[in-house]
């Protein structure tokens, strides 16, 4: 079996190398390793990158889906290196463990662009620029919105002296989960907001629903606010809250992050109160950076995307314009 796989792998490699050498006459070859397609956000991100690549005749994009696994992503990066692409871009699935493969890229003189998630490495010359949202800031925005609006939105009979929050975290160890938690906690520190339960819902609907169900069983009506690290988990949790017999958006105030279309639909129905934007439409910025690199320009170490906060009141107006 082992021999078979290695044979197969090398055959694949030979094929793909033959293809690249044929194509890569004067195009900029970009290897992009995506995390997977775990949420609507990620799908829009993939879409923005692949469609932007198609629109630019000088770009040849090699796209690889890691299905949420770091080992797949490392494999993809290694294969990009052996294919000799011009630029590598990737969204790291977790923050740690990237040193060896990034060193290999550096030795091969291939610049690496991090998109939307950062890595935790000692030597920051291993990557050229980190492009994407500031997750800590998103967490802060969610916290600030809550502090400013809770008094106005809270159900009658609930006090503002203690605000019990349950938190649905993203995938354990991922940058957005860590940072969104940090940012939120930073803002609500010293306020009446108290996080009473916090568990991982893996950024998915099904897990968000299951975890919320368990929260409701143990805390029930004590829960005043749900803070979800992404919209998909919030949408799953909304179903759990409805099945429990409470009104999402009224009995439990819900704030989440990402601003995908489903979140706007839920806000129009009054089931979600606020979503903090985390724009996935990185394609144009990414390939601008790639072209700048190819032209020999210096890039800033940090490129932040422009983002907004959308409370429920604006949802009906904005919904038709959402691309994802």
């Amino acid at each position: 079996m082992k021999r078979f796989t290695s044979l197969f792998a090398s055959a694949l490699l030979v094929c793909s190398m033959a293809v690249t050498s044929a194509q890569a006459a004067d195009k900029i070859v970009v290897g992009f390793s995506q995390i997977g397609a775990e949420s609507a956000w990620r799908v829009a991100n993939t879409d923005s990158i692949t469609s932007e690549a198609k629109n630019r005749p000088n770009i040849d994009l090699k796209f690889s889906d890691a299905q949420q696994k770091q080992e797949n992503q490392i494999k993809a990066l290694r294969s990009f290196i052996s294919q000799g692409v011009d630029v590598i871009a990737f969204s790291p699935v977790v923050e740690t463990g990237w040193e060896p493969v990034l060193k290999e890229a550096k030795r091969a003189h291939i610049p690496v662009i991090l998109t939307d998630r950062a890595v935790d490495v000692q030597d920051d010359t291993l990557w050229v620029t980190f492009m994407g949202s500031d997750f800590v800031e998103e967490g802060r925005r969610a916290g600030n919105w809550l502090l400013e609006n809770y008094g106005r939105l809270k159900a009658e009979g609930k006090s503002s002296d203690v605000i019990n929050v349950v938190e649905l975290q993203g995938t354990v160890g991922s940058a957005p989960a860590i940072d969104r938690k940090t940012g939120f906690e930073e803002v609500v520190k010293g306020s009446p907001v108290k996080i009473i339960k916090s568990q991982s819902g893996d950024f998915t609907r099904a897990k968000g629903k299951e975890v919320m169900e368990a929260f409701l069983k143990s805390e029930g009506k004590n829960i005043d606010v749900l803070y979800a690290h992404n919209d998909d988990m919030a949408l799953g949790a909304i179903q759990a809250i409805e099945e429990y017999g409470l009104k999402p958006g009224k009995d439990i105030i819900i704030v989440s992050i990402d601003a995908v279309r489903g979140a706007f639909e839920a806000m129009v129905e009054g089931k979600l109160n606020c979503t903090v934007e985390c724009s996935p439409l990185l394609g144009p910025q990414l390939f601008d950076a790639v072209e700048a690199l190819a032209a020999g320009k210096e890039l800033p170490k940090r490129i932040v995307t422009n983002e907004d906060v959308f409370p429920a009141e604006t949802a009906a107006e904005i919904l038709p314009t959402r691309k994802y």
């Binding site: 997977g36 397609a37 775990e38 299905q67 998915t204 609907r205 099904a206 897990k207 629903k209 179903q239």
Partner: peptide, 9 residues
């Protein structure tokens, strides 16, 4: 249950 098909998860 989740009223959605999430092929990835």
């Amino acid at each position: 249950d989740i009223k959605a098909a999430d092929a990835n998860n």
